[in-house]
C-alpha cells in the first residue's frame, strides 16, 4: 500500500514531475533569451556583431560599449552619452513616486477613517484616473503645463505623473486601510493625537507592505513612461526612455548595436533593481488585506 502523501492534494508521479520541470526550464530559457542576447552583444566589439552570430559568446571581451553608452554616445546635439538623461529620469521619478505615494496614503486614510458624505462616489471618480488612456490628455495637459509655466521642465513631468499616479496609489491605500481597525484610530483620538499625528505615527508605520507595492508600481510606470517624456520634456529635461529612443533611432552613421544594447540595459537597470530588492514584498503587499492572518 502506498504511503499517504499529505503535502499535496494532487499526487504526481515522478514522470509527471520531470515533465513539469522540463516545461518550466524551457519557458525560463525562452524568457531569458533576449536578456542573454542583450548582455552578450553589449560586451562585444561591433565587428563581431556585424560579422558573426548574435548568439555567440564574445571572442574579445570589452566594456567599451557600456562606457560609450553611458558617457560618450551622440544622443542629442552633444556627445554626452545617456548619463545626463539618466539623472533627468532620477530627478523626475523620485519626487513623483514620493509625492504620489504620500498623497495616495493620505487619500486612503481620509476615505476610510474620516468618512464623509459622498466619499464612495469620490473614490469611484478617482478610480477613473486608472482607466483614462494617456493620449486623451496630451493636449489639455500641454495647455495646463503652459499655464503653470512648467512646460518643458522636470517639475512639469513630476506634476503629470503625480496626477496620473494618484488614482492607483489611492486605490492601494484605501483598500489596505479599509482592513485597518478603526478602533486604533479611536484609541489614538482619545490619547489626544490629531489628524496628522495619527497618520504619521500610527497609519504610515503600519503600511509597509502596501507602500512597497505603491513604490514599485509607481517607479516602474514613471521610469518606463515614454509618451509624456517625449511630449512634455525639452532637451534639458528629457528622461532616459526618450534618450534611449534618440540613441537607437539616430539615422546618421553606423548603427552601433553593441552600444544600443548596453544603453537599453542601462535604461532597464533601475526597475530591475527595484524588483529584485523589493519584489518579495510586492506579492506580500498585494495579498495583504485580502486574507486575514
Amino acid at each position: 500500500m502506498a504511503a499517504l502523501n499529505q503535502d499535496s492534494a494532487i499526487r504526481t508521479g515522478s514522470t509527471a514531475k520531470v515533465l513539469i520541470y522540463l516545461l518550466l526550464l524551457l519557458f525560463a530559457f525562452f524568457y531569458l533569451l533576449p536578456l542573454f542576447v542583450m548582455g552578450v552583444n553589449s560586451v562585444k566589439p561591433l565587428s563581431e556583431i556585424t560579422g558573426g552570430n548574435m548568439m555567440a559568446l564574445p571572442q574579445v571581451w570589452t566594456f567599451e560599449p557600456w562606457r560609450q553608452a553611458w558617457s560618450e554616445a551622440q544622443v542629442g546635439v552633444q556627445a554626452t552619452g545617456l548619463k545626463p538623461y539618466f539623472w533627468n529620469s532620477i530627478k523626475m521619478v523620485v519626487p513623483a513616486v514620493f509625492i504620489s505615494t504620500i498623497l495616495g496614503a493620505l487619500n486612503g486614510y481620509v476615505l476610510t477613517k474620516w468618512r464623509f458624505r459622498g466619499d464612495t462616489i469620490l473614490f469611484g471618480l478617482m478610480l477613473f484616473a486608472c482607466f483614462i488612456p494617456f493620449q486623451i490628455v496630451l493636449i489639455p495637459m500641454a495647455r495646463m503645463l503652459g499655464l503653470f509655466g512648467l512646460a518643458g521642465t522636470t517639475w512639469g513631468l513630476v506634476l503629470v505623473h503625480v496626477v496620473y499616479g494618484i488614482g492607483f496609489t489611492t486605490l492601494y491605500y484605501r483598500n489596505y486601510y479599509a482592513a485597518f481597525p478603526t478602533e486604533l484610530v479611536r484609541a489614538a483620538q482619545i490619547d489626544g493625537a490629531g489628524f496628522f499625528q495619527i497618520f504619521w505615527r500610527i497609519m504610515l508605520p503600519s503600511s509597509g507592505p502596501i507602500t512597497v507595492v505603491s513604490v514599485i508600481w509607481q517607479f516602474t510606470n514613471i521610469w518606463n513612461d515614454f509618451l509624456f517624456g517625449a511630449s512634455f520634456a525639452d532637451f534639458s529635461s528629457q528622461p532616459m526612455t526618450v534618450a534611449l529612443n534618440n540613441l537607437v533611432q539616430s539615422s546618421t552613421g553606423v548603427k552601433e548595436y553593441n552600444v544600443h544594447f548596453a544603453g537599453a540595459i542601462l535604461a532597464a537597470l533601475p526597475t530591475l533593481l527595484v524588483y529584485i530588492v523589493a519584489g518579495r514584498f510586492f506579492v506580500r503587499g498585494l495579498m495583504a488585506g485580502s486574507v486575514k492572518g
Binding site: P181, E183, L184, R186, A187, Q189, I190, G192, S206
Partner: peptide
C-alpha cells in the same frame, strides 16, 4: 475625546502595532 479626561479600553485592545 482627548479633552474629556477619560480613558477607554477597547474590545480588540487597539494597541498600536
Amino acid at each position: 475625546p482627548s479633552r474629556r479626561n477619560i480613558a477607554m479600553v477597547f474590545q480588540s485592545y487597539a494597541l498600536y502595532p
